[in-house]
Amino acid sequence: MTPIDAEPVPLADADLRFLPDWLDASRADRWLAALLAETPWEQPQVRLYGRSFAVPRLVAWYGDPEARYRYSGLSHEPLPWTPLLAEIRRAVEEAVGQPLNGVLLNLYRDGRDSMGWHSDDEAELGRNPLIASLSLGGARRFDLRRAGQGRIEHSLWLGHGSLLVMAGATQHHWQHQVAKTRRPCAPRLNLTFRRVHI
């Protein structure tokens, strides 16, 4: 595995670093297979304009006992770290050089699963949160746009074993998404590690 010495992604008012080959393929394959088999996936409902909708992906939240996390009107009580997730957390913490106490797992089963435009700016993540995003499985396009703007300004292909780190003022100035696609794509598992401030 490579330490977090990648060149920054060239975006103003952002601190993004991308390591497309952070994990070797054999370890990425092993982690993906085990996580797909052992994770108790959920598909929460969110309320928009008075109606309930299932989020378009499967999710699971793990963390330290006090790392409760709320986003999109949903409250998540952390599941306890499994031995595998504890191993992955140690590797990611070593790469980013700071402790992380929670991880959100998102499973994109096919191109119809997605994540809409948002910033990871919840109060419990602190003023300038660090988000370390590990991708396993099929590659998906990750888009970035200026907050309040409509135009995509930058895109990355997040492939098997890649690590994207967003830090500094990124969440103040930028939004990101994983859009739906009609292109055939294998299931993608994304682990976004973060530190929830108690």
Rank of each mutant, 00 (worst) to 15 (best):
P3A: 11
I4C: 14
D5Q: 13
D5Y: 03
A6Q: 13
L11E: 00
A12F: 10
R17T: 08
L19Y: 07
L19H: 12
L19T: 15
D21M: 05
D21G: 05
S26Y: 09
A28G: 01
A28E: 01
A28Q: 01
W31E: 00
A33L: 14
L36H: 09
W41H: 12
W41S: 07
Q43C: 08
P44M: 06
V46Y: 01
L48C: 03
G50T: 07
F53L: 12
V55G: 11
V55T: 14
V55E: 15
L58F: 11
A60P: 07
W61G: 00
W61M: 00
Y62L: 13
G63H: 09
P65W: 01
P65D: 10
E66Y: 03
E66W: 03
Y69A: 10
S72Y: 00
S72D: 04
G73N: 12
L74R: 05
L74I: 15
S75K: 11
H76M: 10
E77W: 14
E77H: 15
P78M: 11
L79E: 14
L79A: 15
A86P: 03
A86Y: 02
R90S: 15
V92S: 07
V92P: 09
E93F: 00
A95H: 02
V96N: 12
P99M: 04
N101K: 06
N101M: 01
V103C: 09
V103A: 03
L104Q: 09
L104N: 08
L105C: 04
L105D: 00
L107C: 01
D110S: 15
D110P: 12
R112A: 04
R112Y: 00
D113N: 13
W117N: 04
D120N: 12
D121P: 02
E124W: 09
E124F: 11
L130T: 15
I131T: 02
A132E: 13
A132P: 12
L134E: 08
L136N: 04
L136W: 09
L136C: 06
G137I: 12
G137R: 07
A139R: 15
A139H: 05
A139P: 14
R141I: 12
R141V: 15
F142Q: 09
D143V: 00
D143L: 09
R145K: 15
R145C: 10
R146L: 14
G150V: 07
L156F: 02
G159Y: 03
G161T: 13
S162P: 09
L163W: 04
A167Y: 13
A167W: 11
H173K: 05
H173Q: 06
W174P: 00
Q175A: 13
V178A: 03
A179F: 10
A179T: 02
T181N: 06
T181M: 04
T181A: 02
R183L: 15
A186V: 07
P187H: 12
P187I: 11
P187R: 14
L189M: 01
N190V: 05
N190Q: 06
V196D: 05
V196N: 05
H197R: 15
